[in-house]
Design a protein around this nucleic acid. Structure first.
Length: 569
RNA sequence: CGGUGAUUAGCGCAGCCCGGUAGCGCAUCUCGUUUGGGACGAGAGGGUCAGAGGUUCGAAUCCUCUAUCACCGACCA
């Protein structure tokens, strides 16, 4: 491709609306343009990268034995009513009516459509296992789209769905997808980590997320320093305390604490150890006779809302009580709550169960209790894992301690069990001629999100540094003053033709621009290999080669350049 | 959905307080000089000042409403 015939659309200035580096660079490098909140057009360079990611995903899916299909973006509402998600999905699901006033949705995911397809197409166990996938546009009406294509409303996704009658082939397919996802990200040269994950609203049991590591990532992942254990913070199990509860040494004491509304203030003003304090959070209960439930975690810990949501006594989705509700039930505000004398179900974190002589709110405004002890001052409450793990504590396998990293979720695999097949009655006949409900797995890759994630991980202050496998072009040719120098023009044209004949994707900057402009643009768009052609090198019979990633320059004789570039690809 | 802020040329911004009919830098077009790291000179084009209503002789500027965008929070396969 010649720049003169291309739409390069680079910008010198950083658009004011772009927050993260990938979004800024995608705009500046002329990859995407915004049409509305969370909606983007892909310009030529962006599309080339998107298509490369897509091709790698497709190849690895095919290698793993999955079969490509294509389902509609627009889906009839009846299917969503069948699985109950028409009610459950919420406003993220964009709903609309056609000219006959029939309800439709813009597909945020395709479990319903695939299950409907499969229940009609499959009739025998002999057709299983089966893994079908598509690369398709999804639409989710995100509350707050942000970070460009990282969290867009319309985005490109590869989604696969597998069908089984036995857990063994389910496990095998799951494992093959796990491997395929690892291959996909490895081939693109991205640093990533598979982590145990919560299944969220998709449902199911076993689940892993694939995270590209980046400081701008929206997810926190907790991994072991001594083993492969890694989990999303939402899912990471906190260790059972190894110490046992000590006998009380302090008397229970009611203390005036007028200026201590937070744990931090309490600890500061009274010289307490933060690990000897607890905070009490009031949430809505699931049972009618227990409309509020108290959750207690240590002062230095954070409530894990996903874990709390799963507690039987707690209403799902998790909802915090309002200050008014708290006052009505307890008679004190949120800054002065504690477990002693509380007349509602109390669930404490495991780490709280082993505390002695601890401090908590007294359920009276501006007062705290110090020296609280279980079984002396109040009955020991039910304990559960309801907090986020913290750096440095042991992992559940006891092979290491937790460390934290930020990640961008680019893939997610699930074992769904019969969540969808049961409600939609997707069955096939087994060996005995009996109808059996299908087991399902589902596997997603955020194709457009990977493009942004790759930039987050591969850039410098001059622009993008594409990994080989997904660069929009492999090689850039920068002829210096080709509009003046016939020799430069001639040699550049020849190299351009030769590289193209070899099947190498090459972008030649044949604009009548000054060298500085050409260098800057080439670095911004981030092609891995650049060949500079100028009069000063021609006399020596060499090209100047520059590697975008290493910045390293070397002179390559005319006759060797093709081999050199082929070898480095 | 709450809080905060913004909306003026393709992009980045000034002008608004104190009302008099719009400006700067970059980009674009023409001509010339330049050409190994975002050149220089001369000229040119481009704006319903987000929209609607109001106040006023007169509104980018003051008032009201609406829309859109961003950030923080809540939310989120």
């Amino acid at each position: 491709m010649r720049v003169s015939k291309y739409l390069l659309s680079t910008q010198k200035e950083t658009p004011a609306n772009a927050e993260v580096i990938s979004h800024q660079l995608m705009l500046r490098a002329g990859m995407i343009r915004r049409n509305a909140s969370g909606l983007y057009s892909w310009l030529p360079s962006g599309l080339r990268v998107l298509r490369k990611v897509e091709a790698i995903v497709r190849e690895e899916m095919n290698n793993a034995g999955a079969i490509e299909i294509l389902m509609p973006l627009v889906q009839p509402a009846d299917l969503w009513v069948e699985t109950g998600r028409w009610e459950k999905f919420g406003p993220e699901l964009l709903r609309f009516q056609d000219r006959h006033n029939r309800d439709f949705v813009l597909g945020p995911t395709h479990e319903e459509v695939i299950t409907d397809l499969v229940r009609k197409e499959l009739s025998s166990y002999k057709q299983l296992p089966l893994n079908l996938y598509q690369v398709q546009t999804k639409f989710r009406d995100e509350v707050r789209p942000r970070f460009g294509v990282m969290r867009a409303r319309e985005f490109l996704m590869k989604d696969a769905y597998s069908f089984h009658l036995d857990q063994q082939t389910m496990d095998e397919t799951y494992q093959s997808m796990y491997t395929a996802y690892s291959n996909i990200l490895s081939r693109m040269g991205l640093e990533f980590r598979p982590v145990l994950a919560d299944t969220g609203s998709i449902g199911g049991s076993v689940s892993h997320e694939f995270h590209v590591l980046a400081n701008s990532g929206e997810d926190l992942i907790a991994y072991s320093t001594g083993s492969d254990y890694a989990a999303n913070i939402e899912k990471a199990e906190s260790p059972m305390p190894t110490q046992t509860r000590q006998a009380p040494t302090q008397e229970l004491k009611l203390v005036d604490t007028p200026n201590a509304k937070t744990i931090a203030e309490l600890v500061e003003q009274f010289g307490l150890a933060i690990t000897q304090t607890v905070k009490t959070l009031i949430v809505k209960g699931a049972a009618e006779d227990a409309p509020l439930v108290a959750l207690v975690v240590r002062g230095d810990h954070e409530l894990n809302e996903i874990k709390a949501d799963k507690l039987e006594a707690v209403a799902s989705p998790l909802e915090f009580a309002t200050e008014a509700e708290i006052r009505a039930a307890i008679g004190a505000g949120p800054g002065s709550l504690g477990p002693v004398g509380l007349s509602m179900p109390i669930i404490i974190d495991h780490s709280v169960a082993v505390l002695s002589d601890f401090a908590a709110g007294a359920n009276q405004d501006d007062k705290h209790l110090f020296g609280i002890n279980w079984e002396r001052d109040l009955p020991l409450a039910t304990s559960a894992d309801i907090r986020n793990v913290v750096e440095g504590e042991p992992t559940p396998d006891h092979l290491g301690t937790y460390a934290m990293a930020r990640g961008i979720e680019v893939g997610h695999i699930f074992q769904l069990g019969t969540n969808y097949s049961k409600s939609m009655n997707a069955t096939v006949l087994d060996e005995n001629g009996k109808a059996q409900v299908l087991l399902m797995g589902c596997y997603g890759v955020g194709v457009s999100r990977i493009v942004a994630a790759a930039i987050e991980q591969n850039h410098d202050d001059r622009g993008i540094i594409w990994p080989e496998a997904i660069a929009p072009f492999q090689v850039g040719i920068l002829p210096m003053n080709m509009h003046k120098s016939h020799r430069v023009a001639e040699i550049a044209e020849k190299l351009y033709a030769d590289l193209q004949a070899k099947g190498i994707e090459v972008l030649m900057d044949d604009r009548k621009e000054r060298p500085g402009v050409m260098f800057a643009d080439m670095e911004l768009i981030g092609l891995p290999h650049v060949v500079v052609i100028g009069d000063r090198n021609i006399d020596e019979g060499v090209f100047e080669y520059k590697n975008r990633r290493t910045g390293e320059k070397q002179n390559i004789p005319f006759d060797d350049i093709i081999d050199f570039l082929t070898a480095s690809n």
